[in-house]
Design a protein around this nucleic acid. Sequence first.
DNA 1: CGATATCTTGATTATGCTCAACGACAGTGG
DNA 2: CCACTGTCGTTGAGCATAATCAAGATATCG
Lengths: 249, 249
Amino acid sequence: MVMNSEQDESCLVCRLRYYIDISDRDERLLRKLEENQISIAAKADLNAQDNIDSLFVVKSGWLYSYVDLDETSRQVLRIHYPGDVVGLTDVAMQESFGTVKAATKAVLCPFPKKHLDDIFTQSPRLTALIFSLGMLEQVVLMDRLKIIGRMSAVDRVAHFLLEIHARLKIHAPKDVDGEFDIPLTQEAIGDAIGLTNVSVSNALTQLEFDGYLRCNKRRVTFREMEKLKEKINFKDRYFKIDTKWFPDA
Amino acid sequence: MVMNSEQDESCLVCRLRYYIDISDRDERLLRKLEENQISIAAKADLNAQDNIDSLFVVKSGWLYSYVDLDETSRQVLRIHYPGDVVGLTDVAMQESFGTVKAATKAVLCPFPKKHLDDIFTQSPRLTALIFSLGMLEQVVLMDRLKIIGRMSAVDRVAHFLLEIHARLKIHAPKDVDGEFDIPLTQEAIGDAIGLTNVSVSNALTQLEFDGYLRCNKRRVTFREMEKLKEKINFKDRYFKIDTKWFPDA
DNA sequence: CGATATCTTGATTATGCTCAACGACAGTGG
DNA sequence: CCACTGTCGTTGAGCATAATCAAGATATCG
């Protein structure tokens, strides 16, 4: 993605506008979060030490956070897409949980925790939205818990791909319609859903054999998406949230 | 737990006070959440339909939320203790995610989503705290993801018990010192960490054999807690949160 | 073009699941 | 008070799924 020098494009504002109207005043609050930006190369770790006390808005690229268990084992916790705020979970803690790695080259906007204050004190409506999106993230984690804890390897991979598709569909609808590029190695996918790269590969072969989808060169193409959703009882969590109870602007 | 007719005891206020000072004004806001209360029998499901649009403060008892995958399989997502707010994750969504079941008989205080408004609009400081505790919950979910995705059955059980101990230690320190009662069947424990009741039983036998702990009649007694924590690299997430950036009262 | 990372496939192994039987225990009603 | 019932926990035998190990094929990147 190309930077717009007029700062006319804010992924974050754009993302939030999907859910509620954003007043000019609120928009100014949000743009303050994107005043600075840094670039990061693909496969590089985001060094939290350099940016302690910082949160990040993702302007472009994919990232993911993970924890290492030992030399040979890690768990990928979350995928971060453009418009996401990275590091909110560290807000609560003094030390950071896991590491953030760039899956592609990426541009981030760092901002200090203190800027959350401004939002909390000045815009109850934005606060409610950010809070709700945090809860939505929790729901996604719980879905992940469910698939890792209780589903077969094939179903886990299917669910994971459908989840990504659902998410992209909202925030990059033009690029995504039954197919999308996934800049993750099969090892990273496995680390996200509790499998080895070998099992992921086998699962993809199986899904293709069964006619549900095709995955080639990091491009996923669904063939029978509805049938697949039904088979694994997939629910799209991203589509809408309940904003009726939000404070007025 | 006995109700105090003077309403002098609020689990929620007490819980939150652990982390920050609560002003009288904020305390009144919080007490509004506990104006009503309902009782629920052990093993009963909390019928969300009856209480749509409602959140609950847990006054006493243990509960847990879960989702069914099919007739034979479910995933337990979260354990709820006194002082917890149940249903926050549903705030974001129009339909509720999973079911809440009482593990013991329990007393809950239902309140409408709208009351969150009052907090968001009137107390940025409480808002920041509630937000942070939400993030803390996410961290706990990510820990769970890690153990389910990447740890052996024995280590999962050990981690799960240590997590509960850490949580109780903060909110019921008198009752908990290296041992505690756990009102969960082995089946429920298994459903929380992706195992069968059989594997949980075997894991407990193994942990006892190795001298780490003893579990009898739903009472857990640690023998070598520090050694166990080290063995599985356990981190206590509940101990403290970063409140430095919070807005002032 | 060479070097490395990633993906595929097959053989073998291990971990945890399923199924089943039994024992301990709590709650119930006669 | 006691048989009856159902829930819960334990144990063992056999099985299934995914992990490990390894080799080769393909893709990516400088």
